[in-house]
């Protein structure tokens, strides 16, 4: 073991890495200040930051942020529940798996946003439409992970279930679902990323108030500082939600020996 893997070494590298990121931002500021790229296209980080502060002070940006995060979470929770429920229905029977599996595998690689026109057709330009878009686009990882988790139960566990004379429901609840939990959690992380993407796409398409729509409007009115502020905020939503999921994963999967 070299010293880089020790705790202080790690912290030093983290600091160095942070410094490098700061240097990148400083470089961005420098490029903007020297006007190497037109300020219409690339405002400095100071102007983007100012735009964000002004937006938050007026309460407008905070409201939009909240709306976007709300949509993302509603869509994610809805599709997680639907995905696990549907996955349980299909996954708990080998027969159902063989009938529905191929269809699901065919639909899965379709671009999720391709659901948008269908959603608009059926529900118009509304919140319901965005929710349908998010739910149908996001359900796949959870659905397939649940089915996979059910299919990959160790035979010995099934035997234990037989020996204990567990009913079908009990087998699902006590053996199959816990067995699928690591897969499901991993898929929910992917699902959250997709949910954020589809929230943004949905807001842009349906013109609903939120960060996704506001950055598109900012671009159309050549309001670069607000545009960059919005994009950075979206990045932060992604970053923070991923970190939260990381923490949740570690807490929930403590019982697993590997990892």
């Amino acid at each position: 073991m070299n010293k880089n893997t020790t705790r202080t070494g790690k912290i030093l590298w983290l600091l160095a890495s942070l410094a490098f990121a700061a240097a990148l931002i400083a470089g961005w500021q420098l490029i903007a200040n020297m006007r190497l790229i037109s300020p219409v296209f690339l405002p400095g980080p100071d102007r983007a930051f100012d735009a964000a502060v002004t937006g938050f002070e007026s309460g407008e940006l905070g409201g939009k942020l909240l709306l976007t995060v709300e949509r993302m979470i509603y869509g994610w929770v809805l599709s997680s529940i639907l995905g696990v429920a549907l996955g349980t229905l299909i996954g708990s029977s080998a027969l159902a798996r063989s009938y529905f599996g191929p269809t699901l595998e065919f639909i899965r690689p379709l671009p999720a946003s391709a659901i948008a026109p269908i959603a608009i057709t059926l529900f118009g330009l509304s919140n319901a439409s965005v929710l349908v878009l998010i739910a149908f686009g996001t359900i796949w990882p959870m659905l397939l992970a649940t089915i996979h988790g059910f299919a990959a139960i160790h035979p010995r566990l099934t035997e234990v279930g037989h020996v204990l004379k567990l009913s079908r429901l009990e087998t699902i609840w006590k053996i199959a679902l816990p067995n699928a939990v690591p897969d499901i959690l991993a898929s929910m992380r992917l699902g959250l990323t997709i949910s954020l993407i589809l929230t943004i796409v949905g807001e842009m398409l349906m013109g609903l108030e939120g960060i996704g729509n506001s950055i598109l409007l900012a671009a159309r009115s050549f309001d670069a500082p607000n545009l960059y502020a919005g994009v950075i905020l979206i990045g932060l939503i992604g970053l923070v939600s991923n970190l939260l999921l990381d923490m949740m994963d570690r807490r929930l999967l403590r019982w697993r020996p590997s990892r």
């Binding site: 943004i200 996704g212 994009v231 979206i234």
Partner: peptide, 14 residues
């Protein structure tokens, strides 16, 4: 974590 779709407006602007 910055989704590609969030860059649509920036690319549109430029």
């Amino acid at each position: 974590p910055v989704p590609s779709v969030a860059l649509i407006p920036i690319a549109l602007l430029i």
